[in-house]
Amino acid sequence: MLEIKNLHAAVEGTEILKGIDLTVRDGEVHAVMGPNGSGKSTLARVLAGQEAYVVTQGQVLFNGQDLLEMDPEERAREGVFMAFQYPVEIPGVSNTYFLKAALNAVRKHRGLLEMDALEFLTMVRQKMKLVQMEETLLNRPVNEGFSGGEKKRNEIFHMAVLEPSLCILDETDSGLDIDALRIVADGVNALRSKDRSFLVITHYQRLLNYIVPDYVHVLVDGRFVRSGGKELALELEEKGYSWLENLAAAPVGA
C-alpha cells in the first residue's frame, strides 16, 4: 500500500524529517509515536500533501504510484485521508453538502456514478452511527461551533463516508477525554478491514489501548529510532521518551 523510502522534508528551510523508511501493507495498522517536535505531524502532512512541507529527498509510493507528485486532492481521490489534528471551521458550508461534494469528487475519480440525494442520506445516516454523531451536526456548517470532541468525531465521520484505503490519524486523541476517545477509537476500529491501512500518529500510548496497532515506530528528531510490535508502546509508556531520545544520535535501522 505505502512505501516510504529515505524521506527527508523541511519546513521553512529547517529539516524536520531526516530519512524515514516505512512499509505499510494492506490492512495493517502502524502507530507512529514520538515526543513533541519529533516530526510526527510533519510526516502526516507530507503524506497528505500540505505545500508548506517541502520534500528534499526520498520517495513515497502509494499503491506503486509516486504519491509526492500528486496534488492533495488527487491523493484524496486516490484513497489517502488525513484526519486533522486541528480541523478547520468553514462557516456557511453545510457539513452534509460539503461531504457530498467531496464524495462525488472522489467517486468521479474512481469511475463511479454520483450518488443521488436519497442514497447519500441513507449512507450518511449509517456512517454517523459509527461515531455517535448527532444529526444536528450534519446540518451545521463544517466544524463551526463544534466542541473539540465533535470535531474529531466529524473527522472520523468524513473518513467513514469517503472510504479511503490509507487513513492517517494526526494526533486524533489530542484534547479528548476518555469517553470521546473511546467513541473515536470505536469508529476507527469499525473501519478496519483487510484492504484499509492506518497510520496512527500519537504522543500517548493511551489511544493504542483502543486502536491496537500491528506495528509501533518511535520517531525522535526526524528518524525512527525503534520499531516493534504493540508492546513497544507499553514499554515506552513505562520508560518515557527520554529512554529513546539518546538513541537518536545513533539510529537503529527501521
Binding site: A48, G49, Q50, E51, D71, P72, E73, R75, A76, R77, F81, M82, F84, P87, V88, I90, F98, L99, A101, A102, L103, A105, V106, H109, H158, L162
Partner: peptide, 12 residues
C-alpha cells in the same frame, strides 16, 4: 483551510 478542503478531494 484550503488544504483541509483539498485533503477531502475538493479541487483547488
Amino acid at each position: 483551510a484550503v488544504f483541509y478542503l483539498r485533503s477531502r478531494g475538493i479541487g483547488q
